[in-house]
């Protein structure tokens, strides 16, 4: 299952540029449904997921990918959390490209990560956090690689097939971190106008780079704002409308993960989720998928499982932390 060699399609900057040249770059309206937006994802695609760990994860989009029963996907994300576990347990991904995977210190090493990687069901290709960030940035810049001083000398070099380059000016050895051009970017933002001009509050993570590197960009937003609002604060726009293919209005679109300033991550939910896995093994995620993914038809039905009280409490906690 393990493939130590880079997939040339990931860093082929010429083909990636041709794909962007060939697609419409519309300044028109992008608003649509989750079903229609995610209908653009095909079996075997490389999906890059925005946010980081349990922060601003586009969970409504990930849930729809699962509901459409996509297969043989590659997932890339800088730090991978429960969304990666759900994609593994559903049999949707065969390869994960990441720097780290688990939920966080209090919940220990992910048993789902361990199960699917140790049995060989999923190949986990590990890059350093900065190297993966530079892979997206090289993609965003449309170049095949970026020089860097990281990842050299470690055994990570052999995992993803990182090559080195001699600096033509000083003669020093540099890491030539290859670009990553994903097929599809899944992104969740704080606000967008109907044309897909997107603004993010708080830490930006890698979303703006991922959106530029991908061929197809699917966005969910907490809030739809009037065009005038975008034009009043254009310096806040980090993804331009012409780069966005589909936009869906999904309040609490990251829950139970966090969205900066709007709602805090639900640690209690993580504890319930991991307790079920501790008690019943990886199969517990199958039950979770039935209850939270395949069962509730709409995202609002899904949010009802958490209840408005819990959502309001997490919103209050976020305001306290960012006020």
């Amino acid at each position: 299952m393990g493939d130590p060699d880079l997939n040339p399609a990931e860093y082929d900057f010429i083909a990636a540029r041709r794909r962007v040249e060939a697609k419409p770059k519309s300044a028109g309206e992008k608003l649509t449904s989750l079903e229609e937006a995610v209908g653009r994802v095909k079996d075997g695609d490389h999906l890059s997921v925005g946010g980081c760990l349990f922060s601003r994860t586009p969970l409504a989009l990930v849930r729809e990918v699962l509901r459409q029963r996509r297969r043989a996907l590659t997932l890339s994300r800088n730090l991978t959390c429960t969304e990666g576990e759900l994609l593994m347990a559903a049999g949707a991904v065969s390869r994960v490209v990441t720097a780290w995977m688990s939920i966080g210190l209090p919940w220990g090493v992910s048993k789902i990560l361990r199960h699917y990687v140790e049995t060989g069901a999923v190949a986990l290709e590990e890059w350093s956090h900065l190297a993966l960030g530079l892979r997206f940035r090289a993609g965003a810049m449309g170049v095949p690689f970026l020089p860097a001083l990281t990842m050299l000398g470690s055994d990570l070099v052999g995992v993803g097939g990182l090559k080195t380059i001699q600096d033509p000016y000083t003669g020093e050895t540099l890491a030539a971190v290859p670009a990553l051009f994903p097929d599809v970017a899944l992104i969740h933002v704080h606000r967008a106008d109907v044309f897909g001009n997107c603004q993010i509050d708080g830490y930006p993570h890698m979303d703006a780079d991922i959106a530029r590197a991908a061929t197809t960009v699917l966005v969910t937003t907490e809030e739809i704002v009037p065009e005038e609002e975008t034009r009043r604060y254009p310096d806040r726009t980090v993804i331009p409308g012409f780069a966005v293919d589909a936009l869906v209005h999904v309040p609490f679109g990251s829950f139970p993960h966090e969205c900066y300033g709007l709602y805090e991550a639900d640690y209690d939910h993580f504890a319930e989720y991991t307790a079920a896995i501790d008690a019943r093994g990886p199969g517990a995620v199958g039950d979770y998928l039935e209850r939270y993914v395949y069962g509730p038809p709409a995202w609002t039905d899904y949010l009802d499982l958490f209840g408005s009280e819990r959502l309001a409490l997490q919103a209050k906690r976020a305001r306290e932390l960012t006020r």
Binding site: G2, V117, E118, A123, L124, S128, L130, M151
Partner: peptide, 20 residues
């Protein structure tokens, strides 16, 4: 690496901190 006895979470930013 591809058939680990125990898979751990991974580098995160540790490799970068150690390098930079």
């Amino acid at each position: 690496y591809w058939h680990p006895k125990v898979r751990l979470p991974g580098t995160g930013g540790a490799n970068d901190i150690a390098s930079l």
